[in-house]
Design a protein around this nucleic acid. Structure first.
Lengths: 184, 184, 184, 184
DNA sequence: TATGAATGAGTATTCATTCAT
DNA sequence: CATGAATGAATACTCATTCAT
């Protein structure tokens, strides 16, 4: 890992644990085993560091969904594949999940940064849009639908992390919970 | 309003806007039109002030659900009544909603405080438990079910606040979204 | 005890333990079981309270020496009687002793207050002056002599309080220590 | 002078003048011509700064006594040499003297710090111990004896500083005062 | 006299950021 | 690129004092 990545990783761990303001730069530099000044060679200031972490996280999240293998057998099956892919990403990446939850709506992240990261999950919005158009899903506004479906994944991930793990059948139940909610 | 309430109200507004650490006590005292020292007559320190706000908010949230009028005609109708009652509370109390979202999982709130506030929504858990037992709902663990249902209300409220308002039929659609998800 | 005395007593105990600045008025009011404002009915402010305690203490100290019974048999005997009287006062009144030690030279006490309290031990200075004039003692400036002799009592009292007690023969040894030092 | 020493010197001057609690860190940083935060790079907090000053002062005091040249001609001569060496140190270092007087017994200084500094005057205790054993001095407990003798130096130094100076013959008289007190 | 809630100036300490090396 | 000592503005909290009751 190069220094930039060491800094980002340390920031992720510390900020998730303590929050943004309760994580001094000195603490990050210590954990990353890097001098305080070095952080400033890679990131203009603390806020920029946070935004970089946000962008990186959103990108990873988007990629995890796009990596879902879609059989094309049925819309239901593909929907559940994507739902499970995102859930799995959130389950396997606790810190990133918590970080995104904490900062998704936070005023620390610039609007432009948020907008820019939309691209990573635009394909998913398109997928849902088609589901509605082809009559597989309720005719709810696609932005609303997206938020509602994402909410079910988030809730499932929260449960996963509070319990510590979840057996396959429960995960399947929860994917089904989401599917029942959206299907026509 | 007495000084204690003025302080709590100012804290709610400022903390939701800026976050806990980015809200100096001096800013709170200014907004509440109270001397800095006065805050410390009513709250031992900043953390205690935050916890008081959390407790007050959870209590109001619990009461909003318990105020839902249950006709007893059908489980579905009652389920939607409660769902809508909570959604309405979240919709009408943006600051409280955002505050609870931000601090529900935050490490700033003591575990004991969280435990104590459970009592306010225990009746709802009981209601869902019965729904499962009487076969109205899927046989999912009731704690899991509660978290999932709550997640749908939270997502709906987020949509409401990002859009600014939501017409009655959409709200009804979203209550139905939740109902379809849970029903047998 | 009236409130004024309760306040003075509480102040003596707390200030000796914690020091002047580390003893808030609120702590004094609590210990004296009196409202904060009540202190200000009896003492203009914190400094005046300290000065009152100083004056009271110096007066008690002066009286303790003047209460020494002088047989008139020999200068040595009378010298030792006075020495022992002051030592006994310091030994029996630990808090007053420590308080006087701490504040005797402190800048908190106004010069005038110190001057005014001289009257209480002027008789002792006169006694030593006579001792020098009659040739019982070394011909050292009487102010210097007074300070040196007082120093021996202070050292003895410090030893007493650090050990917890001192048997009669040791006290007698120490009075003799002082006498040997001053005698011709 | 490096920053650490500048801070210690400023602290010595200010604390002696105003007392510990009446000397804000900001005042120290100003006098030392150093930023407020810089103090915290060298001393963990205000109390640690005080302890460092105490240790440094006790060390200097111990060294001043050990620098006394002992002729070995007579115990009396050596005793007076040491007495005079310490007196001279106290006379030439008013601030350190007053600082040590104020904080020697203060609760601000940790017991361990005090214990640790004993080493600096242990040689003197040994010297007095021998004087007692060889019959040069009264058979008083050596700890008691040390405190009493030290008390005479302290009194002499107080006189010196209140008057402003003292001629050689008076200093000699006072060394003799101490010697007469202790000799057999 | 007595009370104690309210005030707001004052203080120790932290921490993002800079810059000489 | 990397370092870490130095900076000084910012902040939580304290406490002497006041004053309406």
């Amino acid at each position: 890992m190069n220094k930039r990545e060491l800094i980002l990783q340390a920031t992720l761990e510390l900020i998730t644990e303590n929050g943004f303001h309760a994580t001094p730069m000195s603490m990050i530099s210590k954990k990353a085993k890097v001098a305080a000044g070095t952080i400033y060679h890679h990131f203009e200031n603390k806020e920029v560091l946070l935004e970089a972490l946000y962008s990186e996280s959103k990108e990873k999240m988007g990629k995890s969904m796009q990596a879902a293998e879609l059989s094309g057998n049925s819309f239901e099956e593909d929907f559940k594949s994507i739902w499970t892919a995102l859930f799995t990403f959130y389950a396997n990446n606790r810190l990133r999940f918590q970080f995104l939850e904490q900062y998704a709506q936070s005023p620390f992240i610039q609007k432009e940064t948020k907008e820019e990261q939309r691209k990573h999950y635009q394909p998913i919005i398109n997928f849902l849009q088609q589901g509605i158009e082809y009559g597989h899903m309720s005719a709810i506004d696609v932005e609303v639908m997206t938020e509602m479906v994402h909410g079910t994944v988030v809730s499932a991930a929260k449960i996963f992390h509070s319990v510590g793990n979840l057996n396959k059948s429960t995960v399947s139940d929860l994917a089904n919970f989401a599917w029942k909610a959206v299907k026509k």
